[in-house]
Write a protein that binds this DNA or RNA. Sequence first.
DNA 1: GTTGAAAAGTGCTGCGA
DNA 2: TCGCAGCACTTTTCAAC
Lengths: 158, 158
Amino acid sequence: MLKKETQNLEIDNLDIQILTQLMQDATKPYTEIAKELIISGGTVHVRMKKLADMGIIKGSHLIIDPKKAGYDITAFLGIYLEKGSLYKDAVEQLSKIKEVVELHYTTGSYSMFAKITCRDTDHLRHVLNEEIQAVKGIQRTETLISLEESIKRQIELL
Amino acid sequence: MLKKETQNLEIDNLDIQILTQLMQDATKPYTEIAKELIISGGTVHVRMKKLADMGIIKGSHLIIDPKKAGYDITAFLGIYLEKGSLYKDAVEQLSKIKEVVELHYTTGSYSMFAKITCRDTDHLRHVLNEEIQAVKGIQRTETLISLEESIKRQIELL
DNA sequence: GTTGAAAAGTGCTGCGA
DNA sequence: TCGCAGCACTTTTCAAC
């Protein structure tokens, strides 16, 4: 009885189907999913618990429309650092700017790449000129403004 | 009785506090939120209904960890189109590539900017060389591979 | 517009196959 | 391991303030 749990660490097709449904609508009742997949509600629950224990499920977010909430502008920022070693410090400072919603350490021409969301062009200018430029270690930035978000989705597991 | 609804189209502080909580965890019970804000569960429900009717709430997503689901690589793609007029057509074709999770029409050097998620370097190479290059109208692309996602969050409404 | 409680539906747990 | 049934909880509704 040494082996405690040889638990199914595989993700099978059923898991993927459950996840796919909940990735589109996290509040979808388990019972409804169960009906569609022709299994019991309990099974959905067991699978979800397994996936949660495995750490695949990170949580659930309510998705709001940034435009309707007054945030009209999405922009991407290619950031050049003075020295690559300043990366960690820059992350810390940038994380304090709430308009920075994504930050990646990337290969290619830029040192870092950020996605920012602003209310309007004035707000964007303020964030770029005051907030971002004040971050130590940033040499210069290149801005790409998103005029239209044509696709926005999560990866399909299928 | 001509004016049907002069409904509160403003978002007040209470709305924002409710949204902020649910944006972090969409499954958080209304009753718990109500307790924290010292209001009744019914009020939370009424406010959420108002926000949903206003279209601010787009839905809820279950967030999975792409790494643990076997998707290890995030990359950004600067896309140059042969002609700007090919945009609409390119969007349609790119939307069929499930690895493309975001697509923006942008100002700046690139015509379009995409975010893609892949299983591994082989998968990335396949998507870039076979899928993306097959899209008509794309002249060339520039790839930025994300080595680390340092920040990932939604905009704060506060 | 908010409250508090009642009704309906959902999520969770243990037992049986 | 999966499915079923009972219990606890949440959501939703509604009358009253």
